[in-house]
Nucleic acid binder design. Structure first.
Length: 606
RNA sequence: GGGGGUGUAGCUCAGUUGGUUAGAGCGCCAGCCUGUCACGUUGGAGGCCGCGGGUUCGAGUCCCGUCACCCUCGCCA
């Protein structure tokens, strides 16, 4: 054994220490003198002969230390432990007959060790990256450097890198200019909660981290950049989910002199290219476009999973003719009666299962769930079937196209609540009944969003997308007469029931922008104070423009067929937005707070 | 903020109705082993049962509180 060399010898290629990676050697390298660097994955000691699996991000190679190796090397390797970092020099040899390992790409060869250099020792790791049992996520996050040594995690980040490169290449080839925008910006009350950064030079004033570069990219259009793109970090101080982190990355882009179709075409090209290069799948273009109304009506949600059916049917007209009190009450209150037919599911759901589904519907706000099973006789059965005999039952059967053995789930409530309940049920049924191939990917657009939604807090209007979204040209007059009916030039990209991107054509004239602000309850004074620069810029020769932002983390998660966004982020945060590894966020020194003119209410923890 | 789940050895987990000294596999330490590749084999060390309180003759187990992590509703223009 010798110590790590201080005089780095130049070898072939650009690598000084190593000639090859641990995933590289094949039978074609037989007899070559090579040097490998990597981590000790496993050691197998057979006294006279020892095996060390050396691992790097490229793969794993078996190193043999046998009688041919020097006594010093043999003695040295006996001390080696998993996760030590080694430099191994030796000859590539073919493995003896019957000892090749087809599970490894390098399984036909092994490196006969001539010289062994310990580049670094390692304390016993908190968990073994090579282990088959995955540690709990808490442990993985705390020792993230170990977790990231696992081949699965390395593959995830490699996939992310490839996808981002495809995105950048695609935009570059289409003439997009990559422009960076500020991270320290101005807080606006719209949208999500801001992350704030206190100003040292102006006590009492705060920067906000961007929820997205929305206004900057619009101003770049007004500046004439025509096509802008950025891989942009965004920050939203809201509660986390499996697919939501407080900081996340968007492919943010904006184009001038375009209509929605132009932006969508750019993204469709990207979808096609990514699917081809990453999955080897050809996605037919153009993608299906569903109107928002259609989505809500048929799936109860604005980002439906279209890998399976279970569409919602409207039974309101049938219910109107019914004596069933539950149905009548909903209809008379202006609500709707809607249902899902689950083919050949009657026998699969026990009373207990149906109670669980009912609980789901109730959680979604519904007062209950009507379930009906169709008997072989063609009659409905179930707790309320007796209320739905005769023509009503027959009409429901006809409308749902129900057959014996089918299960019908019906919700009578407001449109919003029935949508939510049936969407929740549809999702549950889809996964429980395995109605789709989990490896399949389905891309579609949802378009024609309403401009506004009712804001429960203020009682006024809230922007469905954001306050800069342009209404459809034909709907411009509706801003005055009927804002609720006004549709936006908005488009969401939906992948497997997940919102993977969203964009709009923007308002490019000041008068319309002011009108929309006004509808949103933003006074002219507030608008001037917070968005004065935008209003001025809109009056300074703003081109028609629009764009989109894609959630890169979600894209990678979906393309990697993973359930958690954290598995495609190198250093993610926990559900309480803390970093298990660094301990962020942490208390700071009183001096730092003093400089910032900030006083905390809760005293710092010791 | 609400609902649900988990927390026992470094890691993954078992632990019965509340009852003697809390177990297993992996890892770790020390032997044996010349063709293994999740090597095998013999022995050994290793525990604040998340934390605090309570009930009890007795608590890993029951009760209350609390903390952390995960899923989820609200929230996320």
């Amino acid at each position: 054994m010798k110590n790590a060399p201080s005089d780095l010898r130049v070898r072939k290629g650009c690598c000084v220490l190593r000639s090859h990676t641990c995933g590289e050697l094949r039978l074609t390298h037989l007899g070559e003198k090579v040097s490998l660097c990597g981590w000790v994955d496993r050691v197998r000691d057979h006294k006279g002969v020892m095996f060390v699996d050396l691992r790097d991000r490229w793969g794993r190679t078996q190193v043999v230390i046998g009688p041919e190796s020097s006594a010093a090397t043999l003695a040295a390797v006996r001390l080696v432990r998993p996760e030590w970092v080694l430099l191994v020099e030796g000859l590539v040899g073919a493995r003896p007959d019957g000892t090749t390992n087809p599970k490894l790409l390098t399984g036909a060869i092994e490196v006969g060790c001539r010289e062994l250099t310990v580049l670094n020792e390692a304390q016993t790791p908190a968990f073994q990256p090579s282990a088959t049992d995955l540690p709990g996520e808490e442990v993985r996050l705390k020792h993230r450097w170990l977790d990231l040594r696992r081949p699965a995690m390395q593959e995830n980040l490699l996939l992310r890198s490839r996808i981002v490169k495809i995105m950048r290449d695609h935009c570059d080839e289409l003439g997009f200019i990559d422009v960076e925008t500020p991270v320290l910006g101005r807080s606006t009350p719209e949208g999500a909660r801001d992350y704030l950064v206190p100003s040292r030079l102006d006590h009492g004033a705060f920067f906000a981290l961007p929820q997205s570069p929305q206004l900057y990219k619009q101003l770049l259009m007004m500046a004439g950049f025509d096509r802008y793109v950025q891989v942009a970090r965004c920050f939203r101080d809201e509660d986390l989910r499996a697919d939501r982190q407080p900081e996340f990355t968007q492919l943010d882009l904006e184009m001038s002199f375009v209509e929605a179709a132009d932006v969508m075409a750019v993204i469709e090209g990207l979808v096609k290219r990514t699917a081809r290069e990453i999955l080897g799948v050809d996605v037919p273009m153009p993608l299906a476009k569903l109107s928002w109304d259609d989505c809500m009506e048929r799936f109860g949600h604005d980002a439906p999973d279209l890998r399976y059916g279970l569409e919602i049917s409207d039974l309101t007209a049938i219910a109107t003719a019914s004596d069933f009190r539950v149905f009548r009450a909903a209809v008379e209150a202006g609500g709707r009666v809607r249902g899902i037919l689950v083919p050949q599911a009657a026998a699969k759901f026990s009373r207990k299962d149906l109670d669980a589904l009912t609980a789901l519907a109730v959680d979604a706000g519904a007062k209950g769930l009507v379930w009906l099973k169709m008997e072989p006789s063609g009659e409905w059965s179930g707790p309320v079937a007796k209320n739905l005999t005769g023509p009503v039952g027959e009409n429901i059967r006809a409308k749902l196209a129900a057959a014996p053995g089918d299960l019908a789930l019906i919700v009578a409530d407001t449109f919003d609540i029935s949508s939510k309940a049936l969407h929740t049920l549809r999702k549950r049924l889809g996964s429980v009944l395995q109605l789709y191939d989990p490896n399949a990917m389905h891309f579609s657009w949802v378009v024609d969003f309403p401009m506004f939604a009712h804001n429960a807090e203020s009682g006024g209007w809230a922007a469905m997308h954001h306050p800069f979204t342009a209404p459809r040209a034909a709907d411009l007059a509706l801003l005055d007469s009927d804002p609720a009916a006004c549709r936006a030039q908005a488009y969401d990209l939906v992948i497997n029931g997940s919102e993977a991107g969203g964009g709009t054509i923007r308002i490019h004239d000041g008068r319309t922008q002011e009108k929309v602000f006004q509808l949103l309850g933003i006074s002219p004074e507030t608008a001037r104070e917070q968005f004065g620069f935008l209003l001025d810029a809109l009056r300074s020769g703003a081109p028609p423009h629009g764009g989109i932002a894609l959630g890169i983390d979600r894209w990678v998660m979906l393309f990697a067929k993973l359930d958690s966004i954290r598995d495609v982020i190198a250093f993610p945060k926990t559900q309480k937005a803390s970093d298990m590894m660094t301990g962020a966020p942490s208390p700071v020194a009183p001096k730092q707070l003093l400089e910032l003119g900030v006083r905390t209410i809760v005293p710092p923890q010791p």
